[in-house]
Simulated scan of single mutants.
Amino acid sequence: MNLFGNIRADLATYEGRWSSQGFWVMIVYRFGRWRYTIRSGMIRKPFSLLYKFFEKIVEVLTGIELPCEVPVGANFRIDHFGDIIISGYARFGDNCIVRNGVTVGLKNIEEKAAPSIGSNVSIGAGAKILGNITIGNNVDIGANAVVLVSVPDNSLAVGIPARIIPKKNHGS
């Protein structure tokens, strides 16, 4: 999808609310990703400077750090304002929700590997997800959970350190 198509999709994810700080972050994020499509380094350079300027402005205004190097899937949503740090080494699937106070990042500074988050993942306020781990699909991370191990599909992770609880099947 092109830059404006992605921004339209993000606006739909935010239910048309231009005032949402998460949407502001996504506009700058999409611009940062788009600039990599410019083949000529000479032409890309001013766009890169512009991106770095707007990235810092949005980071200061919103308290949300989402580097453009992070691959995010469709319908990525930052649900609440502030104190969100996402490592440039992380990755997200489709339909993920991130709330305030969340950190998705490195466990150790020496190990340049951050979590890989699946699709349909809801991350509660204050959660910390750290290290070279995988969070499966259809996972809920509880508020203030500290997740240091991989979480399988269809699970709930709660507590410090997080305990992994399989979700109950609603069909039984």
Rank of each mutant, 00 (worst) to 15 (best):
K56C: 03
F92D: 09
S155P: 14
S87Y: 04
G118R: 11
I141W: 15
G105F: 02
A127C: 02
G101M: 05
N95D: 14
I135W: 12
G136D: 05
I109M: 01
N137D: 15
L106G: 06
R91E: 15
G93M: 12
E65I: 05
L50P: 06
I57A: 03
I86Q: 06
V98K: 05
P67N: 04
K112Q: 03
S87D: 03
A113C: 06
V149C: 07
I85F: 03
N100V: 08
V146C: 10
I117M: 02
E110R: 00
V98Y: 09
S122L: 06
K52Y: 07
L106F: 10
G136A: 11
F54M: 11
N75V: 05
A90W: 11
S116L: 10
I85T: 13
V102L: 01
N75C: 11
D79L: 02
V98I: 14
I109A: 04
I84Q: 00
E110A: 09
Y89A: 03
E65R: 03
L106P: 08
N95V: 02
F76Y: 10
L148M: 06
A145I: 12
E65V: 06
T134R: 12
I133V: 00
I123R: 10
T62H: 10
I64M: 07
L130A: 11
A113N: 01
T134Y: 08
I97N: 12
A114Y: 03
A157S: 13
S122F: 15
I109Q: 04
N154E: 15
D153T: 13
V149W: 02
N138Y: 15
I117E: 00
N95Q: 12
K128H: 05
C68S: 06
L50F: 11
I129P: 02
P152H: 12
V58M: 07
R91Y: 05
S122Q: 14
V102M: 05
F47L: 04
I85E: 04
Y89R: 13
V104D: 02
A74M: 10
A143V: 11
V102N: 04
I97Q: 12
R77G: 02
S87P: 02
I133T: 05
A145C: 12
N120R: 01
I57C: 08
T103C: 10
P115H: 02
E110W: 08
E110L: 01
R99C: 10
K56L: 15
P67S: 14
I78Y: 00
A114G: 11
V121T: 03
I135M: 10
A125G: 00
N95I: 01
A145P: 13
L50N: 06
G101K: 01
D83Q: 11
